[in-house]
Design a protein around this nucleic acid. Structure first.
Lengths: 156, 156
DNA sequence: GGATGTCATTGGGTTCCCCAACAATAACCA
DNA sequence: TGGTTATTGTTGGGGAACCCAATGACATCC
């Protein structure tokens, strides 16, 4: 260890950029990245991505629903929604039929296979979230959820 | 409103996918996205992105530091770090000189212009974070920071 | 002094995000 | 009624953050 500057003393510096790490936006980004990694890795076992699972879950809850409505409730871009529903339809997890009442819309509905798949991906997602919040007590986890809910809404 | 399915009843449905929205990973993603949007929009006034500000702030705190060390403390990929330091150097905010003690390393150091820029971007970042957590009391904000800190760490 | 590791850099790749356009269709309203 | 306005699904282009692998120059370890 010849050089005199801090960069070579990685191991004993407590934790470097305090200013940045104290910002909620930074911490949120880091925590979200870890959560995404955990969930994505878990869902990869079923060949799905996080957004696939989110859409499938939303379709199950909303019943027959248009893609635009899905995009609105999940905050997904219409462009990406097309690809996601394409994937789910190709795998037989949802059906995409023309809405008889509004010929612009697709009525996206979950299939029997979709329900079976959803049960598994929900288990995987829940387990990943348990790991994500493993350092927290159940009460703290609820606290976190409550706080996040209040700052997550974009507007409205 | 002719169609009978839920997709056309966007306005009165309370809030759709409860199952998804209750997951910490989902809430974290949404909250992080909003935080990123707020900070990014604020920093755009100075022609900088969030990662530029993070690196600049870290360089200011760590003194002359190698890119690898910066990447480690901030969780930034070496590939992206090259581009970020390129940008900061091009704008005269940091200097990149060969480390005399270790010729593999670049000693990245903040410049006078960098310090001036950092003061402004810190103000902008703090203001964006205040807006992000505007719905929270100061105590709740501290609570959130504490909880996030405990789940944000990847491993180690 | 030879194996092993690190540093900066280049390259390739994915996911998610955002904006703009389009034709078809629906809703609005004068 | 008819003409404007809005919405829907789709295609297109592009950016930002992430991840993995490889390279040559250089340090470190044994």
């Amino acid at each position: 260890m010849v050089s005199g500057y801090a960069g070579t003393m990685a191991d004993n510096t407590p934790y470097a950029p305090r200013r940045i790490r104290a910002l909620p936006s930074w911490l949120l980004g880091r925590a979200a990245a870890r959560g995404h990694r955990l969930v994505a890795d878990a869902l990869a076992a079923e060949g799905m991505r996080m957004m696939h699972h989110a859409v499938l879950s939303a379709v199950a809850e909303l019943g027959p629903v248009s893609q635009a409505e899905l995009g609105r409730t999940l905050g997904i871009d219409p462009k990406d929604m097309v690809a996601l529903v394409n994937d789910l339809q190709r795998d037989g997890l949802v059906t995409r039929t023309p809405d008889p009442g509004d010929r612009r819309k697709n009525a996206v509905e979950i299939s029997a296979d979709g329900r079976r798949r959803l049960r598994r991906t929900q288990r995987l997602g829940d387990r990943a979230n348990a790991e994500l919040t493993a350092a927290l007590t159940p009460a703290e986890r609820e606290q976190l959820i409550a706080l996040l809910t209040r700052i997550a809404l974009p507007e409205e």
